[in-house]
Every structure is written in structure tokens, then in C-alpha cells.
Amino acid sequence: MVRALGSRTRVATVAVLTVAALAVLAGCGTESPDGGGQSGAPLADGNSSSEVDVATPEMVAAKKASEVEECRPGSASDGGLPSVELPCLGGGESVDLASFEGPLVINLFQGFCAPCKEEMPALQTFHETYGDEVPVIGIDVMDTVPGVALEEAISRGVTFPMYADPGGELQGGSLTARAVPTTYVLSSSGEVKLLQMGGMTSADQVKELVEEKLGITL
């Protein structure tokens, strides 16, 4: 299942009404033409979320008490991802995504997205099993309640680093979130490819998709 995101050009009134409906409509909708599952509630314009605090004292404390890994930049000057600096979800070092090199799995999610939560254990198991070869990072996208996203991830055992893009800085680029969850992969040559639009149910499914998209064997 996927949850469709709205256009950044929606009028403010529609955006506000959409935010109020997120929790009710998550995971609901009609069949997606992309074959990724179902499309549901559109999301508010990212501009309305740009001032959201992604590292409140409560979030910082929750992260510190968990096993979530610290956010650290990569060593590349231009590894293929957009040159956008994102804050670390729950506090930590902000990172320019362009510093990351592939192979890498990039999962776009939200806290109130049911299929996002359902696929977290699959991504975590993949990270634990294959993270030395293909790491995983998460990005909480265009979300007005990042504390929920962090709480849901921690409760499901997620330890891979997570970042936040409350203002929709990635929209319109190679990591555009047309729905949540959406997962991309970055190849070792710097090419960004769509891995899956919609939730993944097992680490084996993640592995098979990564092998297929990157042309590697894990």
C-alpha cells in the first residue's frame, strides 16, 4: 500500500484540511496506476511544515534512550543524491545528502502512514543483515508530527539513521515522494533509482529488489 502525496502547489486551505485528515485516511484509497498498491490521503504543502521542530527535548531524550544510529555525513563531494542539507531526526548532525555514496537504500516515510510502519521491520532486518554492503537511511518527509515518526520507528526496532525533510526540500528532485512509503536506491555510480512505491513485507523482498535494481548479489 502507498499513501499519495499532494502537489506543492495546492492552495493553503486544501493543505490545512488535508493535514487534519491524515490520521484518518492513512493507507486508504484507490488502486495506484504505478502498481505500488493503493493511493490514499494527499499531504499538505511542504512549505507549511518548514518550521517544524524535528528535535524537541522529548525526541532527543527518546532517541538517546534508543539504539538509533547517529547521523553522519558521507565522504563524497557529489555521490549522486541531491545537495540538500537535512536535519537529523531526533537531534544530531545535519547532513548534506550529496555526501553519501552508493550503494544505499533511502526510505521516505511518515509517522501516521500505516504501510510505512508495517515495512519498518523488513527494512531493519535488511539493514542488520546487509547494511555493511548496502546501508539504509530513513527520511521523514513533509511531516508535521516528526515525534510520532521517531516514536513509531523506535518502537519497531529501527536503528538505521533517520533524517527529516518537513519543508519538502526534496520534492521535485530525484528523491520526490509521490506517495509514502517510497524507497529509492543509490548505485555505486551515483544513479538514483526507484526501488519500490509501497510497503515491503520482508527483508527478502527488499534484498531481491535491491539486487535487481543495482545489479548486485548480496
Rank of each mutant, 00 (worst) to 15 (best):
V2D: 08
A4S: 14
R8Q: 15
R8I: 15
T9L: 13
R10A: 14
V16Y: 00
L17F: 11
V19P: 02
L22M: 10
L22D: 01
L22G: 08
A23Q: 04
A23N: 00
V24R: 13
S32F: 11
S32C: 13
S32W: 09
D34T: 15
G35D: 02
G36W: 02
G37W: 00
S39M: 14
A41H: 06
L43P: 01
A44C: 05
S50M: 07
S50F: 06
T56M: 05
E58I: 04
E67G: 12
E69C: 10
E69K: 14
C71S: 07
C71Q: 08
R72G: 07
P73F: 02
G74R: 03
D78T: 05
L81F: 02
L81E: 03
S83T: 15
E85Y: 02
L89M: 09
E93G: 07
D96A: 15
F100H: 04
L108G: 10
F109K: 06
F112R: 11
F112K: 05
P115F: 13
C116T: 01
C116S: 08
E119R: 15
Q124W: 02
F126C: 07
E128P: 04
E128Q: 13
Y130S: 11
G131H: 05
E133Y: 08
G138N: 02
V141S: 09
D143W: 00
V148E: 07
A149Y: 00
E151A: 15
E151P: 03
E151H: 11
A153P: 03
S155D: 10
V158T: 08
T159F: 03
D165Q: 08
G167V: 12
A179D: 09
V185W: 01
E191Y: 02
E191I: 14
Q196T: 15
T201W: 14
S202I: 15
A203W: 12
D204N: 06
V210D: 05
E212R: 14
E212F: 13
L214D: 10
G215I: 14
G215Y: 04
I216P: 05
T217D: 08
L218M: 11
